[in-house]
Structure formats: structure tokens, C-alpha cells
Design a protein around this nucleic acid. Structure first.
Lengths: 115, 115
DNA sequence: ACATTATACTATATGTCGCACAGTATAGTG
DNA sequence: CACTATACTGTGCGACATATAGTATAATGT
């Protein structure tokens, strides 16, 4: 079992759900695809275009995000922002994330006690 | 868009990866399926049998877990424990989890600044 | 003694999404 | 003019949590 490929696999699994939370948190301020990628990369989280754009479309379809074309610097850009419904969803997802952290904390503490 | 069904969906997505981390953290001490379910439920994390058993089998197949049948209280039980390779994997997954928390923290802090 | 529930597990199918592959269009740079 | 960067769209695949369905045995209630 090659740990590197296993890690790539599990990273992908862990990104599910997390990516959505990241995007919903980021888009309080409207932004467009390429800018989102740049900004996330600057804080140490690399998302490929081919991952982000389909996600943005899916979230828009679910009415979690709202989009609007604008022309900036003579370029058309699709600006996304979180919807009201998206904000409600984000709060609930944050709760799930907190619960998961709590559970992991409890298990890690229990593990240290058993060492 | 019904937020309840959306939440069930995203909970499922967020469990991917997380469940594996939970199990690897829990199985420093050997345990069997039903006991794992009970113990996790006691600390507030509900996992269905039909979710856990296939996961245990997948992780064993990947040589992340080791299993061994034992008869206890006159009942056959399959005890699982984490392998050496599983421990290496777990350390790496914990790093990913920490990075994700860091990224989320940065984004949340940035969001509060923009409020 | 029988029905029901609990314990403990196995087998298989489905839906979702991150990722990969492939592409278009325009602007900027060498 | 060739190449890279910017900015996006369309489609298919693989992995896994979940759901459905099941077997086997023990414990409990009537």
C-alpha cells in the first residue's frame, strides 16, 4: 500500500464537504472564480479550476450562491456571492464541523490516556 | 431548497474522510464493530452499522486495520486494531485535518474583519 | 414455548462530489 | 507569432457514506 496515493485519495475525501464550507465562508464578499483560486492559494489552500468551477455551478443551482456577470478591466467575469439561504446552510455546516472537532478531541484525549 | 435534506447530504459528504480518521483514532485499542458503535454513540457521534462494517472491511483490505476473530462471552467477535501503516496514515490525516482547521480559521477571521 | 428485540456481522446497490480530461475565448508576454 | 495567463464551460469516473436486505445466535418478554 503506497501511502502517497492513499493520502491523495483521502485528501480528496476530506475535501468533500470542506470545500463547500470554504467557499461559503469566502463568498460573503462577492468574488469570481479565478480570484477565489488565487486568494485561497495565498492562504495555503490549493484548489484546481476544474474543481472550483463545477462546485460554483452546483452551489448556484442549489440557490446557495448567487452569480452575476460583470465586465471589469474590459473582461467579463462571473461574480459569485452567498445567498441568504446559503448563510443559513453555512451556520449549520459550521456546527457540524465543530461537532466533528469535538468528537476528534474526545477521542484523541482518550487515546493519550491509554498510552 | 429544503435545508434539512441539504444538511443530511452535506453531513454525509463531511463524514467522508472524517469517519476514517475517527476509526483510526479509536482503534489504538482493539475493539469490535458493535462496541465501536456503542462507544462512539456515548460520546455523541452516531454511526450506523451499515456504515461502519463496510468501512472496517475496506480499511482492512487496505491493510490500514488488522482483524482477528475471538470468542468472548461465548460469542464470536471480530476485533479490529490499527496497523503500523495505519498509524503512519493517521498522522498524515491529522495533519490534513489541522491544515483544514487553520484555513477555516483564517477565512473566518477574514470574514469577521469584513463585517 | 414462542415472539420479539438485541447483538454481531455480511453482501450489494445507489447517489454525490472532488478530480481528471478536454475544451473555448481573450489578453498579455516573449 | 508562439506561448502563457486569465477566465470560464462541459462531461465522465472513482471512492465512499448511506440504504436496502440479509444471516445467525442470544437475551428478554409474554
Amino acid at each position: 500500500m503506497d501511502i502517497q496515493s492513499e493520502l491523495m485519495n483521502i485528501t480528496s475525501e476530506m475535501n468533500r464537504g470542506f470545500l463547500q464550507l470554504i467557499i461559503l465562508t469566502f463568498l460573503d464578499v462577492p468574488s469570481y472564480g479565478y480570484d477565489i483560486i488565487d486568494s485561497l492559494e495565498k492562504i495555503g489552500y490549493k484548489v484546481e479550476e476544474n474543481t472550483l468551477y463545477p462546485l460554483l455551478r452546483r452551489l448556484e443551482k442549489k440557490e446557495v450562491l448567487i452569480s452575476e456577470w460583470k465586465v471589469v478591466d474590459n473582461k467579463p467575469r462571473k461574480y459569485y456571492s452567498i445567498s441568504k439561504y446559503g448563510k443559513e446552510l453555512r451556520e449549520e455546516i459550521m456546527k457540524i464541523w465543530s461537532i466533528q472537532n469535538l468528537i476528534l478531541q474526545k477521542l484523541s484525549d482518550g487515546r493519550k490516556e491509554n498510552e
